[in-house]
Design a binder for these strands. Structure first.
Lengths: 162, 162
DNA sequence: ACATTACTATTGAGTACGCAAGCAACTGTA
DNA sequence: TACAGTTGCTTGCGTACTCAATAGTAATGT
């Protein structure tokens, strides 16, 4: 019967709903803490972190957008905010005048270190209070495979080594 | 010598990053399909589904908000849209005149069935193309536990000694 | 050289939220 | 009856995005 749809739950749907709920719950809590403690969103933090890890602490906007899963315009506006606070600056590219590098400033690096001090602890607490280490390994491995199938590798030669 | 924090990756942080990326990737794709096919967001769909499953196809807004993880104002505005399309209607409550039930209309039920026809298939495809059934069970079980710990009264600062 | 195509970044318009404030209605206490 | 506190819902304002359109630059074909 067609109305079956309304009461039946496939394991895929169940997984999807769990994913949405888990994400919403986790990001809401962690984002709120990060905002209160440091005035940064998770995306802000992520951008600062990617820049910190990039060679010469700078990246093209396009690559940044790809890594943090924002659109080009999203990155423009996010960086506007970070520039206003002095955490990142602009830099021209010698070989291609279309590109505008986003460069992490010293203030930005300081801010990132401060934010990391609490944010990483909060993430750890959030997850370790819910899962055993072996479960975390399992979870990360499973979730990490979501993008495989149509996504790119997301390595721009700037990935961390540890 | 930049700080250790910048290069260190705990399994918790890794899990969190995977969660964010997985969610973003999955919802972006599924939401786009749902929007194109039926003009509904995932939240819209979820609300229609919850109403369809509720006794008398109606719920209080507060309870709805809690189930789909929106705030009170978020639910008000989401329902505004669904009311405008005639998929849900308002109904007074006899015993408490503050509450305004959201009721699924026949049009809403029809819409939900139509949307389910494609949406569920797309979710299934998204997940089964990436995971084995046993992995899906594992994933759903793990993710489902995220909210446990403060699921019912999830106000912040709840990191007590429990 | 010049036209065509592709890429990078920004801007304008619009959407989907959240938070804080507010009103109305309920509950408990006396 | 009164009235303080709580709950359900809405509204104003702000934010963080998206998509579509645009301008400027680069690469490619002829």
């Amino acid at each position: 019967m067609t109305s079956q749809v309304l009461s039946e739950q496939s394991i895929s749907v169940e997984s999807f709903v769990s994913l949405v709920r888990a994400y919403t719950h986790a990001t809401r809590e962690l984002n709120a803490q990060l905002t209160v403690d440091h005035g940064l969103t998770i995306s802000d933090y992520e951008v600062l972190l990617r820049l910190a890890r990039a060679p010469e602490r700078r990246m093209r906007r396009v690559d940044l957008a790809q890594q943090v899963l924002l659109t080009a315009s999203g990155i423009t506006r996010l960086l506007d905010g970070l520039e206003k606070h002095g955490y990142v600056a602009r830099a021209a590219c010698d070989s291609d005048r279309r590109v505008v590098y986003a460069v992490l400033t010293d203030d930005g690096a300081t801010k990132l270190r401060e934010a990391s001090a609490t944010h990483v602890v909060q993430i750890e607490h959030y997850f370790t209070s819910r899962y055993e280490p072996s479960e975390l390994t399992e979870l990360a491995a499973l979730l990490g495979r979501i993008e495989i199938g149509d996504a790119l590798d997301c390595t721009e030669g700037a990935e961390d080594s540890a």
